[in-house]
Amino acid sequence: MKKYLGPLSKENPILVQVLGVCSALAVTAQLKPAVVMALSVTVVCALSNLIISLLRNTIPSRVRIMVQLLVVSSLVIAVDQFLQAYVFEISRMLSVFVGLIITNCIIMGRLEAFALSHPPVPSFIDGLMNGLGYGLVLVVVGTIRELLGSGTLWGCQVVPQAFYEAGYMNNGLMILPPMALIIVGVLIWILNAKQNKVK
């Protein structure tokens, strides 16, 4: 069991392996789209790992990238249609980034590194855990940015009005895209510092 928990901290795809940063950080200005994005990636990652692992003995290795891309993009289309049908607002907010899940390096990376050489059930769990590890970072960054940037969480006001009257101001910088990168940099710093202490 322990080996599957790695992606949540020690082998976190974003913080340690630097995978899948591409489409992720732009959606973390608020918590809600970040959570939806995290769930979408987890679903796609787990299911594509499962499917590729089931097919792993029939795919010729020369065309495997193409097959992987087709499986992943079909899943992403399904997720995209689902989001448009049930949470249209958020799907508008995420705009092109749902589509960009296709080229998310975590998914391709796990397919290449794990699903092609392991049976279906472990592959499914591996995909799930990597998706969750990715989601965890997204949610942490989303929480920090929304709390400090707009004083809200999940769209509800958290910072009390009395604070504003006492002169507290939202940090507008947090809403800007570059802050996501700086927050992730600091998270990496914290993680590294913690691990060095454990050693």
């Binding site: 570059p178 990168l181 940099g185 990496i188």
Partner: peptide, 23 residues
């Protein structure tokens, strides 16, 4: 560079700062 920040950590922060400059 501080030890824990070497490698990826500082790379992210530099990208963030470059991004701020581009703003």
């Amino acid at each position: 560079i501080p030890k824990g920040l070497q490698g990826n950590g500082i790379a992210y922060i530099i990208t963030g700062l470059l991004g701020l400059a581009f703003m």
